[in-house]
Design a protein around this nucleic acid. Structure first.
Lengths: 223, 223
DNA sequence: TAGATTGTTAATCGATTAACAATC
DNA sequence: TAGATTGTTAATCGATTAACAATC
């Protein structure tokens, strides 16, 4: 039993959907109203059938020989991703990264609204960062309940992340976006997304090291 | 022909290796010198055989009934990921995100050393951000050649990303870490890693929307 | 109509997991 | 030795791609 909201979207498709979204917004700005899988695939470098499979999860039905309605797709993707109604979120940790996230006003267009930030540094508490109040960590639990916040963002040093996450769970938060490079140990039902920059860096760094290590002539045959 | 550096590591393992690394550093700090797959798996929530498969790519051979040498694993992972010798990198875009990356001094421990930042805002050029000089974009190509820099980080608004990436390629840069939410169109041989925060956000947001949409009783059976 | 494009079923591919022999 | 743990081969699973019928 998968609930009443259709089949669950595979992680891989979920990662591509925002790319289609960004692309479709661009098309709409150019006044283009219909688009085919092959055109999307050409511009975004995916095979057309993959685009088709992904778009099927939106429930939008295309017209053979014509394509899909750009406007319909946009609405459907936003609805599928939950971007149509705002998620209010708390952010903990107002270092460099936390500050950057607070300042990224573009997020608000995609349903993410950070309503308050938290820090344990008394010099920061009481200040505003990018227009958001920085509060003491002790306020997190009482405020989350009162404001009915379901989402938490962790941008603390790794050592603090687990404790903060547990606080968030106690506060009734259901989904956590974790920017600290630690695996969080939390109850099954909490939705966690780890944004591990070291993992990404590893991928890049490994491939470059490989490239620089092997003789130049071999590079062509390397992927 | 896959080059002379052993079999290429699958992306999925590559993403887990930094997690093992972080975990092993912690063990070493506690004075633990050997560790088994089952212990790693228990703490990091992976099945032991997966840990074993991943660790095999390091080339380190464990001792049955004992486990793996923590020190050996650390050295091997660092070498595999190319973290043992510094990659000098250029960063373009000194907005919130670019500033955060520049300030993340922890990266330098993992072989990433940003040597210069670039921006097209004349008010920023000539300043320093987190100790790194901000230069005019025109300096990128000549400097990259002279300093032999192979890595570029893009932290610009999406509209600028493609043009910057092309500049980087002209400058001889071989690997690009792209934080702008656009698919870059570049020659095959350029190594690109997209750090698309919207993709991550989509995954989280979709799952939370689903959770909040379905009746509470069904949540238990939802994953 | 003819041809391009969608929708769908089947085949392929790669990654994860299971099973089990080898070893300290 | 007995038992835990590694290393490896085979089975499973899911995602991608190929093939083809349906449709405007």
């Amino acid at each position: 039993m998968k609930g009443s909201s259709g089949p669950s979207v595979p992680e891989a498709s979920l990662r591509r959907l925002p790319q289609y979204h960004y692309y479709l917004v661009g098309l709409q700005a150019q006044g283009i109203t219909v688009i085919s899988c092959s055109a999307i695939g050409r511009d975004l470098r995916y095979v057309p059938v993959q685009v088709r499979k992904d778009l099927q999860f939106t429930g939008i039905i295309g017209k053979p020989k014509v394509g899909y309605s750009v406007a319909e797709l946009l609405v459907a993707i936003e609805s599928l991703l939950g971007w149509n109604n705002a998620n209010e979120a708390f952010l903990v940790g107002t270092g460099n990264l936390g500050t950057a996230i607070l300042g990224h006003e573009r997020f608000s267009r995609f349903g993410l609204q950070v309503v308050a930030a938290f820090d344990n540094d008394p010099r920061k508490v009481g200040q505003c960062v990018h227009g958001k109040p920085v509060l003491s960590l002790e306020c997190l639990i009482p405020l989350a309940g009162r404001m009915n916040v379901h989402m938490g963002i962790i941008a603390t040093p790794p050592e603090a992340a687990q404790a903060i996450a547990e606080e968030m769970v106690k506060a009734g938060i259901q989904a956590i976006w974790n920017f600290a490079p630690v695996k969080l140990n939390l109850p099954e039902h909490i939705i966690v997304r780890n944004e591990d920059l070291y993992s990404s860096w590893a991928s890049l760094s490994c491939k470059l090291a490989r490239r620089l290590r092997v003789p130049l002539e071999e590079n062509a045959s390397l992927n």
